[in-house]
Design a binder for these strands. Structure first.
Length: 596
DNA sequence: ATAGGGTTAG
């Protein structure tokens, strides 16, 4: 972990202010002159150099096409002296201008940069956070940055989101036998988490352990986050608890991700424990923490509780921001509490937070939910006027809402408008409209949309097929239903549970009891829970073709799953059994009824 | 850093 002292002294040298550096240079090379006059002459040269650096620096910063005039501005000056570049970079605060100056120099014949000025420029780019420029500079020149510069470069790449590149440079560093500082390890971990590359996290952590680098509190924080991102919330929680016992308290981000994860699992007890744990350890829950809580409660069907937390926070002096207001408004709209949502809408405006596309879409969604199409349209137009309308999501909300109220024509108009305006449609757009068409009994139109989606190369989801299969089953067109089912599976999608049910009831409707029976056994074998309706239609269908033994088997598994025998099914079974007058079957039914 | 549309519901 120890950095070579030589490179760090280079860095600290480079980071001194330019004037003192030039003085240092003067002292070092001044010795060569060995006499007073020589030293004096040298100082004059230095002053001359500084003067020119300053003037060139000003020109490159202020004159748009300085490249064309610079040589004639300083006719007797030799820019090709490589040390000039170093001085220029030091003086020029804008690293990108320095890079431009470097390119200009490179285009002059006879210029070849020395490694020291390359280092200075590279460090300047890195320090400015210009990771793309630093990368292209590194690629276009063949110099080897100092290890410390590489570390800073790695951190810079991570900040800029170029994790793959950072990891590759990290490998180079390891290749030359340098062990990075913990800060660099952490920045790569952090970058990997943010880029969603959890595979990198575990790989890096494995290497850390191997090279016996000592993890610190930040490392732990990123590991906890990585666990959460992989949905291994308990693993993350256990890790956190272990380090908390040692008095190591990660930053809020780790707690927040755990809270969000536990909210998704509806483990609200854990959420509350974590909140208490944060407070006890002086990590006061912040606005992000409470946002996870409110959002988690609302999404988990605990909207009223989310609203209580929200109001409670305000009472305790937390000032909700725009995201928090929007989250709450969305939660209220989900519960159809449009009155409260509207109140918050005006409250946030009054506090100076202007609704954005998130807020508008939440409200529009809410108005559709309560069937207030006029208000939904009004909000939509207002949103468009404010310039928030031109997005896929906004169209999706409108299309879905209109379809759910049978306004298929309007929905389709918007769908067309999207392509005119060049707004991308995604699978959600198509799914909404396919569903809409099917609901109106327009299977052909719906199917055409599905084919269009596939033609566009958009990845369909199970919901792209489900409404079509459902409708085909209702109409008894089992051949086409089966074709769609197979197509969906061939594309690697698992049908939703209810789609299995559609198929069973569809076959029964056609009197195909044996197919229905097969589909049911497949379901049960895959540990899927069929709907009661599927059992019932199958029992009816089987008894109609006098397969009473099978009907009773189906009834048996239905009761085992926990459904009650409804009176109409009971009646028709008993009628059939009496017709047949077969005693063993009768006693079997008796046994089943005992358990019911 | 954080929020949105997404299977199912009347």
């Amino acid at each position: 972990m120890a950095r070579p002292s030589s490179s760090s002294s280079v860095i600290s040298f480079l980071r001194q202010n330019p004037n003192s550096r030039i003085r240092n240079l003067g002292v070092v090379s001044g010795n060569q002159y060995g006499d007073v006059e020589g030293a004096h002459q040298h100082t004059q040269q230095q002053q001359h150099l500084e003067e020119i650096v300053k003037r060139v620096s000003d020109i490159t910063r202020t004159r748009p096409r300085w490249e064309q005039t610079l040589l004639s501005d300083f006719p007797s000056f030799n820019f090709l002296d490589p040390t000039f570049l170093s001085h220029f970079v030091e003086h020029q605060k804008n690293a990108l201008i320095s890079l431009r100056f470097f390119h200009w120099l490179s285009s002059q014949s006879g210029f070849s940069p020395d490694s020291s000025s390359c280092n200075v420029l590279f460090d300047a780019l890195v320090e400015a956070g210009a990771c793309n420029a630093a990368k292209s500079f590194l690629d276009s020149t063949n110099f080897n940055p100092k290890p410390a510069s590489l570390e800073a470069y790695i951190r810079c790449l991570c900040k800029g989101g170029l994790v793959e590149e950072a990891i590759s440079v990290f490998g180079q560093l390891k290749g030359i036998g340098v062990c990075a500082s913990i800060a660099t390890w952490n920045s790569v971990l952090r970058g990997s988490v943010r880029a969603g590359r959890i595979d990198f996290v575990w790989e890096l952590y494995g290497e850390m352990v191997e090279s016996s680098v000592v993890a610190d509190v930040h490392t732990v924080g990123y590991l906890v986050q990585a666990f959460c991102d992989e949905n291994r919330i308990s693993d993350g929680h256990n890790l956190l608890r272990r380090v908390l016992e040692d008095g190591v308290v990660p930053r809020n981000a780790a707690f927040n991700k755990l809270i969000s994860g536990f909210c998704k699992d509806k483990a609200y007890g854990r959420v509350s424990d974590l909140l208490h744990s944060m407070i006890a350890r002086n990590r006061a829950p912040d606005i992000f923490t409470y946002q996870e809580v409110v959002n988690g409660l609302c999404k988990g069907g605990k909207g009223p509780e989310g609203f209580r937390v929200f109001k409670d926070l305000k009472d305790r002096g937390y000032a909700p921001d725009r995201v928090m207001y929007t989250t709450m408004i969305h939660g209220l709209c989900r519960m159809k509490w449009l009155g409260d949502a509207r109140k918050l809408w005006f409250e946030m405006i009054q506090k100076g937070f202007l609704p954005n596309e998130y807020t508008y879409n939440a409200m529009i969604h809410g108005y559709f939910k309560i069937g207030n199409l006029e208000e939904a349209w009004k909000m939509y137009r207002e949103m468009c006027d404010k310039g928030y309308g031109e997005k896929t999501v906004s169209y999706n909300v409108m299309i879905k809402g209109l379809c759910s109220h049978g306004k298929i024509k309007e929905a389709h108009d918007l769908f067309e408008e999207m392509s005119h305006k060049g707004i991308l449609r995604n699978h959600i757009t198509y799914n909404a409209l396919v569903r809409g068409f099917c609901k109106e009994g327009k299977i052909v139109e719906g199917a055409n949309l599905l084919y269009e989606l596939l033609d566009q190369g958009i990845q369909p989801s199970a919901a792209s097929y489900a409404p079509l299969i459902d409708k085909l089953c209702q109409e008894g067109d089992m051949q086409n239903a089966k074709i769609l089912w197979d197509d969906m599976q061939n594309r690697g999608m698992e049908p939703a549970v209810c789609t299995h049910d559609f198929m069973i009831t569809g076959f029964c409707k056609q009197g195909c009891a044996m197919e229905g029976m097969e589909w049911l056994t497949t379901m049960l074998r895959s540990k899927l829970r069929p709907q009661k309706k599927s059992f019932e239609s199958l029992i009816q269908c089987l008894s109609q073709i006098d397969r009473l033994d099978d009907a009773l088997l189906v009834l048996d598994s239905m009761l085992k799953i926990g459904f009650r025998l409804s009176i109409s099914i009971c009646n028709s079974l008993v009628t059939k059994l009496c017709e047949k007058n077969s005693l063993p079957v009768e006693t079997y039914l008796g046994k089943i009824l005992e358990r019911n």
